[in-house]
Design a protein around this nucleic acid. Sequence first.
DNA 1: CGGTGATGTCAAGCGGGCTTTACGTCAAGT
DNA 2: ACTTGACGTAAAGCCCGCTTGACATCACCG
Lengths: 65, 65
Amino acid sequence: MNSRVRELRQARGLSQEALARAVGVSRQTINAIETGRYDPSLRLAVHLARHFDSTVEEMFDVDAH
Amino acid sequence: MNSRVRELRQARGLSQEALARAVGVSRQTINAIETGRYDPSLRLAVHLARHFDSTVEEMFDVDAH
DNA sequence: CGGTGATGTCAAGCGGGCTTTACGTCAAGT
DNA sequence: ACTTGACGTAAAGCCCGCTTGACATCACCG
């Protein structure tokens, strides 16, 4: 699933680790989502969207691939 | 996780089975989500929100419980 | 050159999301 | 009384989301 996590994270100058701590998951989880290795849970997706003042629909492209 | 799936489904006069078919999952999955036994995946949550012309954030209360 | 931060990825393990199959209950209608 | 539809739930099994721990690479900087 494509997402704008990396784009938004970098736009704010955050490391994967800093974002991971901010949303309560491990650094590897953020990396896996950014590299498309797996999709976040609904809960994590909402937390990520909130963190970037966005919405789930705007941040995650459920239709890609 | 609380959701408005049951409320919206009933408002449209759909059975769990009809909704399940519409969003591409089993009837048991819809039932489990409505009864709070587990949370939908991000993909399914988006499909459900779309089906009801709503948004993920409006349909699912990630903070409940 | 040596150290540090950021990133990518792997492996093992746990629990959860979803499936199929299968029951049981209840309401409504004939 | 019987059937039918809708719902609730259980069990077994598969795959995925997430964890910790570990290792490698690369850029940058003293």
